[in-house]
Amino acid sequence: MASKKKEGSNAALTGLYAELNTLGQADEYEKIIKISNKILSMDKTALKALQYKIISLINLGRFDEALKQMSNSAKLASSLHFEKAYCLYRLNKNQEALEAISQAPEQTLQLKELKAQLFYKLDRFQESHQTYREVIKNTDDDFNDERMANLAAVLAQLAMTNQPVPDAS
């Protein structure tokens, strides 16, 4: 009996995940939040459902809610360094965002990209420049033009504040 019930809930879960997958492709963020909540009510350890929910909240501009959700399920959300730092960045809590990034076990390129943007916001243009150089060297995607625009912005700020351009190292 118990196993039958478990089977039933497993089938329900796989269906809900399939829905998440479809809704994710359609960027149906409100609906994703509902489905994620359903999954999380059945399985409190569903990290991917939580991640779907957080990313949807971020895309809806609800950064406070996303952060609250992450602190409510702090243990489950402990690996979502990028999501947390991004919310803090958008809420202008730049120092806290840097701290969140430094807590990640590995400084991925994604985290470094966010870090370069944070340094810029914090007027730490030399560090921003250095970080951008590294990101640009190691990235190959459709956004290199935008990245170069950001680097140009950093260089302009360095010039405007009479700071030297750091050496490539």
Binding site: T14, A18, Q51, E83, Y86, E113, R147
Partner: peptide, 22 residues
């Protein structure tokens, strides 16, 4: 003020749930 793009947003992507879909 120079133009400055938020490129980090592009890195936010839904995780792959094909393994959970059955």
């Amino acid at each position: 003020k120079p133009l400055f793009f938020d490129l980090a947003l592009n890195h936010l992507q839904f995780p792959d749930v094909s393994g959970e879909m059955g």
